[in-house]
């Protein structure tokens, strides 16, 4: 091991290195500030920009403009088909939504637990939504009161379509903890 160690430099050698005069700048260094140097830099910058814009373009390919997905808004029948005070689970399977009819109007709850996204079950007798995964419970209004769910269920935009049917837009959600349930669209007055 010992013989691999580099030899200690003598004082004279160190001094020699330190006192060695700086080499003269190579002739190219002057050219760095010349017109040619500037144009070379400009050329490379243009090339880099060109490559960068291609990378952005390739990334953009991953985001399609047109989607062939189920529409986010749908009709769920006429207001008179609903009974006051009853949670309607008819559209749970198809649209993942519950429509609740109160005496003043309607609201639509997204049937997705705010804990980890399972679909809770409406228990009529116990008057609550109960998540089968981890036991979160929500009131009929959608407010969490037991289990690990951190916040109330989300409500979806609800309005009346031109033909008089109830229209729900699932791309617009209203969150209670942000005070959005008071906003127009979270509740449909009749």
């Amino acid at each position: 091991m010992e013989e691999n160690k580099p030899k200690e430099a003598t004082e004279a050698e160190v001094k020699g290195v330190l006192e060695h005069p700086k080499p003269a700048p190579p002739p190219g260094a002057q050219a760095e500030r010349s017109r040619r140097g500037f144009l070379v830099k400009l050329g490379w910058a243009g090339f880099a920009l060109f490559q960068l814009s291609w990378i952005v373009a390739f990334m953009r390919v991953f985001f399609p403009r047109v989607l062939f997905e189920p529409p986010t808004s749908f009709k769920v029948g006429y207001p008179w088909e609903y009974t006051v005070g009853v949670v309607n689970t008819r559209y749970q399977q198809q649209y993942r939504v519950w429509i609740v009819r109160e005496s003043e109007g309607f609201y639509a709850l997204l049937a997705k637990c705010t804990h980890l996204g399972c679909t809770p079950v409406w228990w009529e007798g116990e008057n609550k939504f109960k998540c089968p995964c981890h036991g979160s419970g929500f009131t009929k209004e959608g407010v969490n009161y037991e289990g690990p769910a951190p916040r109330p269920l989300e409500r979806l935009k609800i309005s009346l379509a031109e033909d008089g049917q109830i229209l729900i837009d699932s791309s617009l959600v209203f969150r209670q903890e942000r005070g959005e349930w008071e906003k127009p669209g979270a509740f449909l007055k009749v």
């Binding site: 991953f62 985001f63 399609p64 989607l67 062939f68 997905e69 189920p70 791309s171």
Partner: peptide, 19 residues
């Protein structure tokens, strides 16, 4: 949004479908 984030780029849409 659900229509421009990393999940959208991975799925090629907003749902786990054909894309």
């Amino acid at each position: 949004t659900a229509y421009n984030d990393i999940r959208f780029a991975l799925l090629g849409g907003s749902v786990v479908g054909g894309n």
